[in-house]
């Protein structure tokens, strides 16, 4: 419900950030915040924490769909191109074989499908996750890429006393208010 499908956040938003030393604390805090209808802005972890997506209530990503259709497109394009060159654009008698010798077209079609699927999926991921060279990382607390787990609640929770309570209750070692650029 707090999905990124909503309108982009305002230029600078105020977040309440809790820093944890354990993933368990982070997970529990995230779940508790959602139970109390507190908006979870994001979490930042040094590794992929299992169950975090569920705890944050993230929807399923549609990247597999991208992957499937791009693969299909690659397959179709490669097949069509090979058939076009071999039968219509430049039909040549090669080794006495028929122009449309389908089994010979399998390897290239397969490889093209895999290539297109992989590259398109990764590209879609980069775009969707807003990752590209030159982009500076969201930095709410030090050590997120080392050993800290950060839960950011917001927007518009800094005046809600429940927010600080949730963080504190689940073992946040540090709680801060931060103005962040999204």
């Amino acid at each position: 419900m707090m999905a990124e499908r909503l309108a982009p956040p305002p230029r600078r938003i105020k977040l309440l950030v809790g820093v944890f030393e354990q993933e368990t604390g982070l997970l529990a805090a995230a779940r508790a915040a959602r139970e109390q209808n507190l908006p979870v802005y994001d979490a930042y972890t040094p590794y992929a924490v299992h169950g975090l997506d569920a705890a944050m209530g993230l929807p399923r990503t549609r990247l597999p769909t991208v992957c499937f259709f791009c693969g299909l497109a690659g397959l179709a394009a490669a097949l069509a191109f090979q058939l076009w060159t071999a039968t219509s654009n430049w039909p040549m008698n090669v080794g006495g074989k028929p122009f449309h010798s389908l089994p010979a077209l399998v390897p290239v079609s397969f490889e093209t499908a895999v290539l297109l699927a992989s590259l398109a999926t990764v590209l879609a991921f980069f775009l969707r996750a807003r990752l590209w060279p030159g982009r500076s990382p969201v930095s709410l607390a030090n050590g997120v890429t080392d050993d800290r787990f950060v839960l950011a609640l917001g927007p518009a929770v800094t005046f809600d006393p429940r927010a600080g309570e949730v963080l504190r209750q689940h073992g946040a070692v540090e709680i801060r208010e931060i103005e962040a650029a999204p």
Partner: peptide, 20 residues
């Protein structure tokens, strides 16, 4: 000048072909 020339099939750039 084989009708089913094995050399032709394997050339990646179609540098060897069969004429009509």
């Amino acid at each position: 000048h084989c009708e089913n020339a094995p050399c032709e099939t394997v050339c990646p750039v179609l540098a060897t072909l069969h004429s009509s």
